[in-house]
C-alpha cells in the first residue's frame, strides 16, 4: 500500500481520529450481561417447549377422545411426529450465542459454516420437518374416510381432495426450501472463490 495517495492517508487519519463514545464495560459488567443473555436464550427455549407441548396436549386430548383405533393410531403418529419436529427445531435453532471459537474462524470460515447449516436444514426439510407429519396425516385421513362411510355420500372423494391439497402444500413448501438451499449453495461457492 505504498502507492497510497495523500487523500487516502487523510481519509484514514480522519477515520482513525474520529471521536468515539468511549463505551467501556468492566469484567463484572460483562459477566452480568453474559448471564442476562444466557437467561434470554433459556427463556426463548422454554417458550418453544411450551408451544410444542400445547400442540402435543391438543393431539393427546383428541387421541383420548377418539373411539376408533385407526384415529387413535393417527393421533399417536402425529404426536410422535410433532415431538420429533420440535426436537429438530430446537437442535437446529440459530438463535444462540456466538461460538466460543469465533476468534479462531475467519469470516469466510464462520459464514461458510452458518450457510452450510442453513443449506442442510433447508435441503433436508422432507426428512425432519414435513416427513415426520406425513404418516399421522395419512393414517388420520384413511381413518376419517373409513369411520364415516355413510356420513357423506362422497366421503372418500372429500378425503382424496383434502389429501391432495395437503400433499400439494407440502410439495410446494419442499420446493421453496430446495430453491432456497440452492441459493445458499451459490453463496457458499462465492465464498470459496474469495478464499482462493
Amino acid at each position: 500500500m505504498n502507492d497510497e495517495s495523500p487523500q487516502d492517508r487523510e481519509l484514514k487519519e480522519l477515520w482513525q481520529n474520529q471521536k468515539t463514545e468511549g463505551v467501556r464495560m468492566s469484567v463484572a459488567e460483562i459477566q452480568a450481561s453474559a448471564g442476562r443473555f444466557q437467561r434470554r436464550i433459556q427463556g426463548r427455549n422454554l417458550r418453544e417447549y411450551v408451544a410444542a407441548a400445547a400442540v402435543v396436549v391438543f393431539f393427546a386430548f383428541e387421541f383420548w377422545r377418539a373411539g376408533d383405533v385407526l384415529v387413535r393410531a393417527g393421533f399417536a403418529l402425529l404426536i410422535a411426529g410433532m415431538c420429533y419436529l420440535a426436537w429438530q427445531l430446537h437442535a437446529r435453532g440459530s438463535w444462540s450465542a456466538l461460538p466460543r471459537d469465533a476468534g479462531l474462524s475467519t469470516y469466510v470460515e464462520f459464514k461458510r459454516r452458518e450457510l452450510e447449516r442453513q443449506r442442510d436444514a433447508l435441503s433436508s426439510v422432507w426428512r425432519w420437518y414435513l416427513g415426520p407429519l406425513v404418516p399421522g396425516l395419512v393414517v388420520l385421513m384413511i381413518a376419517f374416510g373409513r369411520a364415516n362411510p355413510g356420513h357423506l355420500p362422497h366421503m372418500w372423494l372429500a378425503v382424496g381432495v383434502y389429501g391432495a391439497a395437503v400433499a400439494a402444500l407440502f410439495i410446494w413448501i419442499g420446493r421453496l426450501n430446495s430453491a432456497a438451499a440452492r441459493k445458499l449453495q451459490k453463496e457458499i461457492d462465492e465464498l470459496d472463490e474469495g478464499g482462493q
Binding site: 453474559a34 456466538l98 466460543r100 471459537d101 469465533a102 476468534g103 479462531l104 464462520f110
Partner: peptide, 23 residues
C-alpha cells in the same frame, strides 16, 4: 461479551489483534 467469552479459547495461534477483529 463475545470477546470476553471467546478469550477462554485464545491460544496465541494468531495475534490478539487478529482475534479481536475476527470476533
Amino acid at each position: 461479551i463475545a470477546l470476553w467469552s471467546s478469550l477462554d479459547g485464545f491460544d496465541g495461534r494468531c495475534s490478539l489483534r487478529t482475534w479481536v477483529y475476527r470476533v
